[in-house]
Design a protein around this nucleic acid. Sequence first.
DNA 1: CTCTTTGCAAAGCCTTTGCACTGAC
DNA 2: GTCAGTGCAAAGGCTTTGCAAAGAG
Lengths: 149, 149
Amino acid sequence: MAEPGKGAASTKAAPTDWHEELRSRGYRVTPQRQLVLEAVSELGHATPEEICARVQQTARGVNISTVYRTLELLEELGLVTHTHLSHGAPTYHLAAEADHVHLVCRGCGEVTEVAPRLVDGLVTALDRELGFVTDVHHLTVFGTCRNCR
Amino acid sequence: MAEPGKGAASTKAAPTDWHEELRSRGYRVTPQRQLVLEAVSELGHATPEEICARVQQTARGVNISTVYRTLELLEELGLVTHTHLSHGAPTYHLAAEADHVHLVCRGCGEVTEVAPRLVDGLVTALDRELGFVTDVHHLTVFGTCRNCR
DNA sequence: CTCTTTGCAAAGCCTTTGCACTGAC
DNA sequence: GTCAGTGCAAAGGCTTTGCAAAGAG
């Protein structure tokens, strides 16, 4: 959703679009939900804990469990996605900015984002041969980077 | 390949090769280690807990923490690998049989194994363009299968 | 005012760790 | 006999849940 470019609002692609979306589904717009979404937007790839810390810079006392519940909701709404870049906590980022594939180096732990065109062939092949629709957002490729090989 | 006796041919690959490998590195060959490797071989894709349960059918009292420690060791030796097929525990399988990529359907949860040739293009591109060597064993593609799309 | 959402605390998974005993070599 | 390996229990991350109080609509 929302591709008006990042020039507009620094944090939200579509200021109130998702507010409507929330309400129309019977959910409520709360400061916590706005703050979590902003934090995800600003942090890029962040774990729930990092998001929580960020949010607390603005609003004291936002609880980690609220962050988890909110991330789950935002993911259900298609506003954010998550991926697993390590053995630990997952990282969340805006779905609108998720147009890339993650490369994680086992040697140095470095995370690189690469253009999705590199997996186009795979995606096409899986679709054509198996009818399988790949969730590119969630795709993470583990391996060894140039410097560590 | 369920060989009750710890005789030869139980663990597919090389019966005693890895025993030598272990000893030469200063590790010891223990019944627990043999049993865990056999369990991985027999179960295919199994979580540590499942492996533990399996091992306990043969030898009661093998502890879950021993299973974890052993899996870590076997992975270091290159005998087994693991991958994450869900949000929960990882699944382990023989490295020798790991020549496939996993497809996991978000809808029905089904896990499919596909030939690695489907990712050849990706692997080649990453290597050529970035010098990144992909760990195909660990690669899991999430998405939606034909029946759930 | 109603009903969703939150904060808090406790509980739940999965995994790791400390330590004394056991057993491979 | 020595030292790696094991079992056990406790602790550790990360996440979920129950419930009363707070607050959005």
